[in-house]
Design a protein around this nucleic acid. Structure first.
Lengths: 113, 113
DNA sequence: CCGAATCCTAACGGATACTG
DNA sequence: CAGTATCCGTTAGGATTCGG
């Protein structure tokens, strides 16, 4: 449950219960299929609970379980770490890519050392 | 860098510097290719550093950078959470699977409700 | 010993159409 | 509205081979 959709679902449900279509609208770019798959996985892991109201039109609410809430605390520290260090990471990327760019050319054109 | 190989590499390197083949032996089931790919990603993200000793046979050491060490602290809380709650999760799996098993049959054999 | 490159298969994930 | 089922392109990742 460490994929990106799960993280977003957990973050959103921490604030309040949400319906399927609310989640779909709130999570930009998620397909209906992936949201369904994600919600099933989280439900199976006991992170969220699913409540079906036998009304028409159908209504299904999702909410974090106590287990899910405790997981959210842990996840937040990961998110915080990422936010705090993303500049360092970007700098590391730039440094790494430049290093590679300086070393590659020798191999593709070794004509006359 | 949240995949399972990366997590294991970070956990191992937290104790001490390791060579490529040491990591390969220590991480059960990792292919040479995936270990290489994983190490490159971690290096690019600035999580580990790579030191090549120009000797024969070649020797390459990997170690955690300060950034990597700080990440490890965060990861540990995730690992700890997983260990502490894996029984709850297993129970949730069993409960979910049983629920599904009780509901599915109606659909495949609805003969004579 | 360390790693790059190639090949190939399985899983992931989007788009679409259909159901209750 | 809230799914399920199907098709299908993309990618992850193992096995293998070659190079420094």
């Amino acid at each position: 449950m460490a994929d990106k959709w799960s993280l977003l679902v957990i973050a959103l449900l921490d604030r309040h219960t949400m319906r399927f279509s609310e989640l779909r609208r709130a999570i930009d770019g998620v397909s209906q299929r992936m949201l369904t798959v994600t919600l099933r996985h989280l439900e199976r892991d006991g992170i969220i609970s699913r409540t079906v109201y036998p009304v028409v039109p159908p209504r299904v609410d999702y909410e974090l379980t106590p287990l899910g809430m405790s997981l959210h605390q842990v996840i937040k520290s990961l998110v915080t770490w990422t936010e705090e260090h993303q500049q360092e990471i970007a700098a590391a990327h730039a440094a790494y890519d430049e290093r590679v760019a300086r070393e590659e050319p020798e191999l593709v054109s070794p004509r006359r050392g």
